[in-house]
Every structure is written in C-alpha cells, then in structure tokens.
Design a protein around this nucleic acid. Structure first.
Lengths: 232, 232
DNA sequence: AAGTGGTCTAGACCACGGA
DNA sequence: CCGTGGTCTAGACCACTTC
C-alpha cells in the first residue's frame, strides 16, 4: 500500500518528532540511510525531499542534512469559492449583481494591472447570499488588457469568480487578510451595524505574470471564519 | 542551471496558462511526453508531479491526465513568528508575561488536549510589543500531559512560542482566522477602543497526534494584515 | 580535493481502474 | 483485459560547498 519512500519519510519524521533527532542535529547522509533501509539512494532522496518540502530538514551539499532549527510556520490555506463553501454546508447559494461598469481604476489597481493613466478596466460589485442572508460583499476589478472578452460577458447568471476560473487557470495569487470596521455602504449591504467588525480578504490573481483580477471580499465578522489545516 | 524536469514542468505550465491546453483537456501520456522531450519516463513523471501538487492537473491510472477543471484555491500561508515579523520590519520586539498559572482549562481546550475532567494545564497570558506599541495579545494553554517539563520553565525571558518550537517540531497545525469586536480586557491591553475590530488567530498545534498547545492571538485590526503569496 | 546532495538513465515490476 | 501512472533499481555524472 504505502510506497517505500513514504515509509522511510514517516520513519524519519518520527525520529524528529520523538526528539531522537533534535533540532539542529545532523542526519546520516543518503548513502548511509539507503544502506539502513535497504533501498537505493534515489529512494532515500525522495523521502528526504518530502521532509524538506515541509520545512523539517535543511540540506546542503557537502555539509549534509540537519533537522531545521526554525520551523517555517507555513500552512496551506484554502480560500473557499463562495458557492462551494455555502453548498457544502447545506445552504442555498444565490448572488446579486449590484453594479457593472467600465471605469478608470484607482491608482493601486492601475499599478497592479500595469495600466497607463486613463486606461479602463471592468468593475463588478456583487453580493452573495447564504439562505437569503448576506454572506459576502464583493468588489472586483478585471483587467481588460489580459481578458478583453470579459467586456462581453454577462455576469448576472454566472458569478465572476466561476467565469474566471473557467477562462484562465491562475498561476500566482496573493491574499491579504484583515479585520476592519464596516463602512456605511458595506454595513448596509451586509445588514450589520456600521462600525462592526468585518473580515476582509483582498486577492490579486495573476496568470503567467499578467494580472487577471483584483477582488475585495467583505464578510460580516460574526459569521465568518477561515480554517486552515496543515497535516504533517 | 535549471533541471530538465523543471524545464519540462514549466513548459507544460505554459501550455495550460496560455490556453493551448484548456481546463478538462487530456494531456499526452508519460511515454509520449518522454519521447517529445527526449527524456525518460521517470523524468516526465517528476515534472507532472509538480503540476499535480499545484492542483493544475489531475491524474488517474488508465484514464490518463487532464487539466484540472476546478482549481483548488489553496495557497500557502505564513503565520509569522512575532519576533521575526517585527524585527524584519526593523522594529524592536519586546514582550511581557501578564500571567502564568496551572489551571483547569475550559471544556473546548480539554477536548483538544484529551484531558480528563479536572485535569490541569499550563496557562500563559502575555503581550507582545512592536516599538513599545501593543502588537499582539496572547492567551495560551500548554498541555502538561505532552510537555511536563513546561511546568518548570520560566517564560519571562524567552517567549512561549520560541521555547516550544525548540522543544518539539510540530507536525500538524490548525488555524482559525476571524474578525471580532474587542472585548473590554483585550481593548485595554491593546490600547484600542472597546468594540473596535480585532484580528483573531486561534492556532492548535499537534506533534504526532498529541496536542501540544492552543493559542489565541489578538491583533488590533488597524495594525495587522496577513499576506500569503502563492507562486506558480 | 573530496564529500555530499541533485539529477538523470534504462529498464523493470506492479497496482489501479476503465473498457 | 491491458493501458496508464506509481514506484523502484543500479549505476552514473555533475554541481555545489566545505575542507
């Protein structure tokens, strides 16, 4: 069932977590481990690569391998697609297109999209509902330089996010997470008190170094949590 | 410089992002790609594995490989170590131990630690400063069942987090991120208005399925953002 | 100079799962 | 059944880094 490189990886993982190999300690070289486990060196190499990917060990040629001193606390985070997130909970998803226009974006967006002064982009504002309750307020800019055919698309039926992922697989993304006080407009749309805490996600998405879209997602603070789970 | 498997991986990545291979489309099998690039099959396999890890393609035996339809929006998130985060910005880090006692934890913590009713754990409350400004309020429980020697440790000098990562490399972690309104005590400690938005991180850490610690980190909303960057 | 990890080959066996 | 991906071997060459 389990591949040999996985068995070896987990075995070595156990030596680290059990403390048998303390942080900073040297690890036998690949040849020695290959002999110990009765496999060839490439197999050991693959097992060790898994530990490097998790930030558990550090390797240098000639110097050898060591248990990492400072674990880089990197976890994988899943920023949910609204529809899937809601339907996974058994809720009913719907959304409403609040506004759609082609306009000159603010300088911050302009810089991200690499637009010249006066260039325009597509702006969409919409509201997502979970069982008719406001769940997320979305303010999105789409680069028409990268996706000219977005101008012809009607986003009333399919949401912008669903349309976009179908168009271009993204290669890079950046998320900024913040807690803010709800502004007047946001509070009204989300039906919360003005000034109450909201969870804000700002996501910029690139495909092959070309910016596709920038979006600001606002959740009512009380009704939203982002969970990330990082398995060894 | 670049390894052949990397060159092949990036070449295939380009075919996907350029749209030459649309989402859902079939990819030539490993043998065909090996012939095309003039390498052996294991090298192609490694290149494709990189694309699977990024969620760009899906593979099934016999059925072959396809460009993924639904990109799983998984990004890696770096939850910063306070000291490093502050010092990286050129700030001066300091921290203050507000309280330390051995007590019976609330049921939620008890369940995570797997403790019997009435069992105790170590509780630490501390405040972290960036240039003498409150940066983060920390409320932590440490399982004495897993780490009995924590009871003998003085956490005034080294912060709990720094001590812990030196003790046990963790293998699993779960983060819950939320926006909340500051409570009275929190607001006072962080020097913000009561009810103003705060960014809350709750992290549970396990080593080899044994819970190590649970911590609640509260940041003033205006002064904190979490950035995650996912490179292709 | 020499040890270590990084990669690649040529060939092989096998498990899975669609037809 | 049998094509496909998943893995492993035995051996090799090379790049990097410390000695």
């Amino acid at each position: 069932m389990a591949a040999r490189y996985q068995v070896i990886r987990d075995d070595l993982l156990g030596r680290i977590t059990s403390g048998a190999w303390a942080p900073g300690a040297a690890i036998p070289n690949e040849a020695a481990l290959a002999a110990e486990f009765g496999v060839t060196r490439p197999t050991v190499s693959r097992a060790l690569r898994g530990l490097v990917d998790r930030g558990l060990i550090e390797r240098k040629r000639k110097a050898g391998s060591r248990v990492a001193l400072h674990r880089t606390p990197v976890t994988s985070m899943r920023v949910p697609v609204v529809r899937e997130e809601i339907e996974a909970r058994g809720g009913t998803y719907s959304h409403l297109l609040l506004g759609r226009d082609i306009a000159v974006p603010p300088d911050s967006i302009r810089a991200i999209f690499g637009l010249a002064r006066g260039d325009t982009a597509l702006r969409l504002r919409s509201l997502h509902f979970d069982n008719s309750q406001p769940y997320q307020l979305e303010d999105r800019w789409i680069s028409l330089a990268t996706l000219p055919n977005a101008a012809a698309q009607d986003f009333a039926a399919t949401s912008a996010n669903e349309w976009l992922v179908r168009q271009v697989p993204y290669t890079q993304a950046e998320h900024v997470l913040r807690a803010e006080a709800a502004g007047a407009g946001e509070a009204a749309a989300l039906k919360v008190a003005c000034g109450s805490p909201v969870f804000v996600i700002e996501r910029t998405t690139w495909s092959d170094n070309a910016a596709i879209t920038w979006v600001r997602l606002v959740h009512p603070g009380a009704g939203f949590r982002l969970v990330s789970r990082d398995d060894g």
